[in-house]
Each structure stands twice: as structure tokens, then as C-alpha cells.
Design a binder for these strands. Structure first.
Lengths: 233, 233
DNA sequence: CGGCAATTTGACTATCCTCAACAGGGGTGG
DNA sequence: CCACCCCTGTTGAGGATAGTCAAATTGCCG
């Protein structure tokens, strides 16, 4: 049996739209791989050997300066695509933040498969265009927003991303939303272009202001969404 | 005669690879348009109605906060593609920085044409992937680099972009490179996430250090490329 | 319970921003 | 052709935001 038949992102990833036979062929060149938190799928500057689909978990894409400063340039969730098809070296590393399942393909195999399946390329194009839009919106945050605006924007984005309906789930709009952050404070700092201390101070400030609650280090409960939106700039 | 036959970006834009008949069909749904500096092709948040190829000139993609702060999220040059095919609203405005020629298509027409021409979609995908890489590299600059590193990185990037071989030109590697900036100081600030004053001060500092010369407001001559690279972080 | 890492808090500092005044230079009109 | 003006850019002084360094605290895991 094809693994794809039981794949939970089957209808959302770029494989959506492929028929049984095509899926089988794609399945033949791919394999699933498990990653533990902190484990890297590949590194910045490395020749692009692999591409992958995220089945489960959260991963970061990150860029580093020579002297060790880090900027997280993207965060990928289930059904997202990872990697750089069609040559070139990857401009960033990919590292799991949680336990993760990815569906890995050799880049050359994938390139060849894509060349013969315009539907797949189309899905990938749509996804890439969306990712480019999202990335550009993030640039406004990095370049022009203050620490408090960054934190508020971050929380709003992460809530929407993590509570995104996965398919057939219902969403109720009742009361405070709680999210479990897949990020450490340091990682939040690396996403926002801040230091860990500034992130921490902004969190305690929002808590004192009654806008959020922090049940534990990895959880955030939004008590006043309008307040957050007002702070997001 | 098809306009495409005389198009100077014919072999570099996403139209490369189309045969005569296909080009004719594409030409039928497009038209060229001239833009003067400061003129916008479309605005942030507007429904995506148009897409275009840049034939000549330089344009900025920019995002603004409600209170008027601006971040330039991309700069496009001849042969680059502009716009958001396949639905969605554009997340940023597009404005000419110099006199510019663009080849404009209605989005719906373009979408339909693309759906029937996988080669075109493939070119567009490659271009979009490259743009995403470039954009992500820029995030490291915005989030983690100091003002002096930003300016140095900016100058290096702009030199490479503007002196890029266009096709059959030879490049000589002799002596100091001079570039004419298509940007005002304010625009440079909006690209780097700085203020105009900081940009100005960094320029004078680099000039005093003998790393660059500033023959006029819009020209930069690089006297010490290694020095710049050392400053770029 | 102890050890360790992550986070928070505090004090101080540096970088960059803000506000303000000044300079330069390109174009226009006399 | 030259003087003037306006816009862009430069320079300066002072201040705020976020960074740095250091110490205290939390909470997790054995």
C-alpha cells in the first residue's frame, strides 16, 4: 500500500491533485523520516540535495551571520514544502523545533518528477507565491516595528497559524484562545530580531497589562485580542 | 510583428522558452506600459488585477504600517516578474523608481495562459523560488545587522545587481566600480529599516574611511571592496 | 532533594532615532 | 547668464529604545 494513502496532509500538501498512479510514482522516490527537536534536515549553504514535505511538527528555517547571530527566516508547519528544487544552494538551514515527520525526496528525483507533472509544479508555485507574500509581510515587522509591536504581531500570527482549521474541524469562537508555543524564548527572539531579554520583558508587560496570561513557559492565553491587535501596529 | 520579437528581456524573462506561436498568444493578451518615477502600478491590499514583466527600469515593492512607516520589501529589475497570479490580494504596492517599461497582463488572462503552458509556469516557479531565497537572505540583514553592516551589505548587493551581465556583454575587472543608485537616501533607509539620517551618516563615515567615494548624491564609487566586505558582517 | 538549563529581573550602556538647523545643487525665471 | 529657491541631503545635540552583562529565580528531570 502506498504511504500516501494514509498521509494526513494528503489533501493539503503539493501532492494534492495527483491521481493514484502518480502518487505511487512519487511515493516510490520518497521516504518518510522522523526528526527530533534540534535535529537538522540540512544546513545553510549546503548544496541542495533534498526537498521534503512536512507531515507533522514544526521546523525553522534559519540564517546565521559568521559571528553567530541567528535570524529565523521562516517557520514551516504540516503540509508545507521544504527545500530548493532546480539547483542552487539552500540559503538557510532547516531544523526541527518539535518532533517532526517529513516526507523526503532526493532533489534530482523530485526535479525530474516535477518536470513531468505540471499539476505538481502548479501546486508548488502557488505555495511558493504564498510563502513569498508571507515573508515580505514579515519584513515590515523586522524593519519597522518596535519590540512591543513585534511581540503583539507575533502572537496574533502564531495563534492564527496554530489554530488553522486542518480540514473538517469545526472552530468555535468562544472565550480566550490558548496556544502552546513550539518556540523557546530564544527562538522567539530569533524570529523577531530581538534579544531574549527584550522578549521576556515584553511578555511580562503584556501579562501585567492583562492582555495575555502565561500559564506555563510554553503556553500563552490571549485574554484581550483587541488589545493585542491595537499593539500590533 | 510581435512586440516580443524586439523585447530586450526576451531571453531572460519568464517568456524565455516559449516558441513563436506561444509568444504571439502571450503578446495578444499583454500590452506595454510606461511608468514615470513615483508612479504606481498597483497598491498594497488591492485585489490582484494585473501582473507584469519588467522590461526596463527599477521598481520598488513596499509595505506600509497604518501610521505611515514604510518598508521596501523588494526591488525589481529588468526581466523580473511582478504581481500575484492565482488569486489573493497583493500584500505590497509596486512603484516605479526610475522611468520604466513594463509588459502588463490582466491577471485572469495570465492565469489562464499559464495553466496551458507548463514551461511558463516552470520559469515562473524558478524565478519565484529565487526571489524567496533572496528575500529570506534580506531578513537576516533586517533582523540582525547593525547600521554599518546594513549599509555595506546594501552597497555590495546593489553593485552586483546593477552590474549583472545582461547577456553577451563582457565584464572587465579593472579598478573601482561606480554605480548610479536608483534610490534616494530615504528609499535606501526604507530598504534597510533605518532612518535617512543614519544612512547619511554611514555614507559619510565610509567616505572618510576611504572605502567609498561619493561623486554625486546618486553615485557611489567603491574604492575598497574588501573593506566593504569586511564591514558587511 | 539537588543540579541544570531556561527564563526573568535589574542596572547600565550603546546604538539608533528624533528634532532641529544648515548646506548644496539643480532647475527656473528674471 | 546668474540669482534665487526649493528639495534633498548632511550635520549636530539630546533622548529613548533595545542591547549587554550580571545575578536571581523558576521549573524540569533525574
Amino acid at each position: 500500500m502506498s504511504n500516501c494513502d494514509v498521509c494526513v496532509v494528503r489533501n493539503r500538501a503539493i501532492c494534492a491533485g495527483l491521481d493514484g498512479k502518480e502518487l505511487e510514482a512519487l511515493n516510490a522516490i520518497g521516504r518518510t523520516r522522523h526528526l527530533t527537536p534540534g535535529e537538522s534536515l540540512f544546513w545553510e549553504g549546503e548544496d541542495s540535495i533534498l526537498v521534503a514535505n512536512v507531515i507533522d511538527g514544526v521546523l525553522k528555517l534559519s540564517s546565521n551571520t559568521e559571528d553567530g547571530r541567528e535570524q529565523i527566516v521562516g517557520v514551516v508547519y504540516p503540509s508545507d514544502f521544504i527545500g530548493r528544487p532546480f539547483g542552487g544552494t539552500s540559503s538557510h538551514g532547516v531544523t526541527a523545533l518539535t518532533d517532526a515527520q517529513v516526507c523526503v525526496f532526493g532533489r534530482r528525483d523530485f526535479d525530474a518528477f516535477a518536470a513531468e507533472h505540471p499539476k505538481l509544479e502548479h501546486k508548488l508555485l502557488e505555495r511558493t507565491l504564498g510563502e513569498l507574500d508571507r515573508t515580505r509581510r514579515w519584513m515590515l515587522l523586522l524593519g519597522r516595528k518596535s519590540a512591543s509591536e513585534k511581540i503583539a504581531s507575533f502572537l496574533l500570527e502564531i495563534i492564527d497559524r496554530l489554530n488553522e482549521p486542518k480540514g473538517c474541524e469545526f472552530r468555535f469562537d468562544d472565550g480566550p484562545e490558548t496556544v502552546e508555543l513550539p518556540f523557546s524564548r530564544q527562538q522567539i527572539a530569533d524570529i523577531l530580531g530581538l534579544t531574549i531579554e527584550t522578549v521576556s520583558r515584553q511578555f511580562t508587560r503584556l501579562k501585567s497589562a492583562g492582555i495575555i496570561d502565561l500559564p506555563s513557559r510554553r503556553e500563552v492565553r490571549v485574554l484581550d485580542r483587541a488589545g493585542l491587535e491595537a499593539e500590533a501596529g
